[in-house]
């Protein structure tokens, strides 16, 4: 269905393609470079002599005998027990997503079906909370958490992340539930269901697309968090991102930087697959709030 208005002169099409290609290079280049470089030794990855050393691994061959080395990964995962941090991240992220989605679907549904004024105020309050820098909230938690002796444990960080997640989850699911026709659950209630039964039997079966999209973003928030987890978790319960930041404190000892590089690449891999499999949901989630106005 090529409309005349959509057709472009060859010159412009070329220019547009060149621009997009340039953008793709900027967007993906750093990742490709770092993933490739993580299999080299430090003197190749930070090669003053010639940047091509990092490509061919000249020093890597001299130091290890092969063009690729897994030393960085071995050092990070085994020597520095990065696997433990990865496990902590897994626990935190899975629990956060499950709990915040459970709370969020109930709340979002209620907000979408209530026409009262306080529903609007709750949404506005949620918007303000969404804008709150996380570190300001963290500074409020620390002292009470120390006093109650709950500082440093995984459940504490999980429940805090759930709460910080709520405003966003509520907004997103609220706008999603608005798109499910009111008639569906109301006719179920006319047939004698209670509100909860209507929710259980009518809404839950059709809500999964919205829930999956929202849970992706909850996942990202929990996974990418630095402010909360770095301040609220003790050393042994640390998750991946603060640990990587911690690696930097010990930088510049030979090889240590490559531990950090390897850890960084390891932390990117799950995100890579997330985008690979859920690209459509992420795009629809990003635009959900916007296109509908």
């Amino acid at each position: 269905m090529a409309s005349v208005a959509r057709r472009r002169p060859a010159g412009l099409a070329f220019l547009a393609t060149a621009f997009v290609a340039f953008w793709l290079m900027i967007a993906a280049g750093p990742f490709v470079w770092t993933v490739w470089g993580s299999f080299k030794v430090e003197s190749d990855f930070f090669s003053k002599a010639d940047w091509r050393y990092a490509v061919y691994g000249v020093r890597t061959v001299i130091e290890t005998g092969e063009a690729f080395t897994g030393d960085g990964y071995f050092g990070a995962w085994i020597q520095e027990s990065f696997w433990r941090n990865a496990l902590n991240t897994l626990i935190v992220v899975v629990c956060t997503v499950i709990i915040s989605l459970t709370f969020g679907t109930l709340g979002g549904y209620a907000l979408a079906r209530s026409g009262f004024r306080y529903a609007f105020w709750l949404l506005m309050a949620a918007l303000v909370c969404r804008a709150m820098p996380h570190i300001t909230l963290v500074s409020g938690y620390l002292l009470p958490f120390f006093q109650w002796g709950v500082w440093g444990h995984l459940p504490t960080a999980i429940i805090v992340l759930v709460a910080i997640n709520q405003p966003f989850t509520l907004w997103m699911l609220h706008s999603f539930f608005l798109n499910i026709p009111k008639d569906m659950d109301e006719s179920a209630m006319v047939d004698g269901c209670t509100r909860l039964q209507a929710f259980r039997h009518v809404i839950i079966p059709v809500m999964w697309p919205g829930v999956i999209t929202t849970s992706l973003f909850s996942f990202l928030l929990a996974y990418n968090d630095f402010a909360v987890t770095s301040m609220l978790l003790s050393q042994e319960n640390q998750t991946m991102v603060p640990t990587i930041a911690g690696f930097l404190g010990t930088v510049r000892e030979q090889g240590q930087v490559m531990f950090a590089v390897a850890a960084v690449v390891s932390a990117i891999v799950p995100l890579f697959f997330l985008v690979l499999f859920f690209q459509r949901q992420i795009v629809s989630g990003l635009t959900a709030g916007a296109v509908k106005g």
Binding site: G104, G107, Y109, C129, M132, G140, Y141, A163
Partner: peptide
């Protein structure tokens, strides 16, 4: 319906602001 969500938000967002 809103209770769990509201409780989480008031305990861990509103209260810390007061704190």
């Amino acid at each position: 319906f809103i209770l769990p969500s509201l409780a989480a938000m008031s305990l861990f967002i509103a209260l810390p602001v007061v704190s």
